[in-house]
């Protein structure tokens, strides 16, 4: 019987496809001395209040998804991801106020909520028994937990974490050029490298630019 594994990359696959690069497919890559566990400890020291701030495509959602399993082990987490111009929560903030302790509301894309809703959430989820962790592109008045950005070294580490075919075809120079062109937006860098990979895969040897 022939068998195949989900982890295997088909021969004609592009390792920069969303399947392998979307937030959550690769854990957030911390600089030396930092870790997900250390950040959760820091969040606890901040009374479970915190914001992850960074520009578009800098890894905020990826970082959040890396923290969530650790958070869920210690807190009752509700994770809300606001996307596509969504400006409302699907539940009333007050409905969650009473009941269990250790409640942790996690909002990805906090600034998409209206200022009044943000203020209400900050007021509701403070104190020892509840917490609020958010991502945003700018300071929204919560204690800073982490600031994301994408230096070249980190971008190269992301590419190195992809299936090996990516590193055979794409060089560090390719990554650097895309990173400059897209002003540090790693999501756009990966999209651009998808195209570069498609162009090169059809050459005889898929050679790497030097």
């Amino acid at each position: 019987m022939e068998s195949s594994s989900c982890a295997m990359l088909p021969a004609d696959a592009n390792p920069f496809a969303t399947r392998w690069t979307r937030p959550g497919a690769i854990d957030y890559l911390f600089p030396p001395g930092q870790s997900a566990a250390a950040l959760v400890d820091r969040l606890e020291r901040q009374n479970w209040q915190g914001q992850i701030v960074g520009p578009h495509g800098s890894g905020k959602t990826t970082l959040l998804l890396t923290l969530l399993p650790l958070l869920a082990a210690r807190r009752n987490v509700i994770h809300v991801r606001l996307a596509g111009g969504q400006r409302r929560l699907s539940f009333s903030p007050d409905s969650w106020r009473d009941g269990d302790n250790c409640k942790q509301l996690v909002v990805d894309g906090f600034e998409q909520l209206r200022p009044w809703t943000r203020a209400r959430l900050k007021h509701t989820y403070r104190g020892r028994m509840s917490g609020l962790l958010v991502t945003a592109h700018r300071d929204l008045g919560l204690p800073e937990l982490y600031s994301t950005d994408v230096p070249l070294e980190m971008a190269c580490r992301v590419v190195a974490a992809l299936p090996p075919e990516a590193n055979r075809v794409i060089s560090e120079r390719d990554v650097a050029e895309c990173l400059t062109r897209h002003a540090g937006n790693m999501r756009e860098v990966l999209f651009a490298l998808y195209d570069v990979f498609e162009q090169r895969r059809n050459t005889s040897d898929g050679s790497v630019a030097t």
């Binding site: 696959a13 592009n14 496809a17 969303t18 399947r19 999209f191 998808y194 195209d195």
Partner: peptide
């Protein structure tokens, strides 16, 4: 669970 399915793969949403 066993399923027969198709999925897209590329730059955008899957």
């Amino acid at each position: 669970e066993a399923s027969v399915l198709w999925h897209t793969e590329g730059k955008g949403d899957e």
